[in-house]
Amino acid sequence: MIAFFQEFGGQLLLKTWQHIYISAIALFLGVIVAIPLGVLLTRYKRIAGFTIGLASVLQTVPAMALLAMMIPLFGIGALPAIVALFIYSLLPILRNTYLGMENVDPTLRDAAKGMGMSNLQSIMRVELRMAAPVIMAGVRLSATYVIAWTALASYIGAGGLGDFIFNGLNLYRPDLILGGSIPVIILALIVDFLLGRLELLLTPRTKQEGN
C-alpha cells in the first residue's frame, strides 16, 4: 500500500481532482437546469409528463453508449463527459423537484396567493422551502450516480479515477483497480455526507430550538 502511494501518489491526487472537477460541474449544471425546470413543470402540468418521460428515456441509455454518442458531437476529453453526466444527473433532480413542489400542501399555495404573494414570491418563500428535503434527496441521488459514472468517463479520454480502473483492467493489476475504485467510493460517501448536512440546513424549522 505504501509502495502504491509512492509509485502513484501524485497521479492519484491529479486523477482525484479531475474526478471531482468533472462530476462537480456535471452535477452543478444538473442542479441549475433541473430545479428551475422542475418548478416550471408544476406551472405547466400539460408538458410535465412528457418532459419527465424524456428525462427517463435518456436515463435508460446505457452509460457507455451515451458517452460514446458524445464523441461525434463534442470530440473527446472532459467536455463530452460533462455533457453526458449532466444528462444523467437531470432525472432524479427533475423528478424530485416536480414531486416535491407538487406535494406542497395546496392550502399553503392558496394562502400564499390569497394573501398577495406573486408567483415568484410563493415559489421562493414558500414552495421551494417546503419542497427542499425532497429536492435535496434527488440531488444526493444524482451526486452518487454522477461520481460513480464519472469513472466511465475515462473511456472517452476525460481522465479522472477511471483511468486507474481501466489501466488496471487492461494490465491485470488488481492494485490499480482497487486504487481507482476505493477513492471513488470514498468520494461518493463524503459528498453524500456533505449534501446530507446541507439538506438538514435547508429543511425548514417548524419548532423552536430545544423543543
Binding site: 400542501d105 392550502t107 399553503l108 392558496d110 394562502a111 400564499a112 396567493k113 390569497g114 394573501m115 398577495g116 404573494m117 406573486s118 414558500v126 422551502r129 417546503m130 425548514p204 424549522r205 417548524t206
Partner: peptide, 20 residues
C-alpha cells in the same frame, strides 16, 4: 390582482399558516 389581494384579508378553513 397581487396588489388587490394584499388589501383584502383572507382566512381559509385549513388555516394555512406557513409552517416554516
Amino acid at each position: 390582482p397581487v396588489k388587490l389581494r394584499r388589501k383584502i384579508g383572507y382566512v381559509i378553513q385549513n388555516v394555512g399558516l406557513m409552517p416554516h
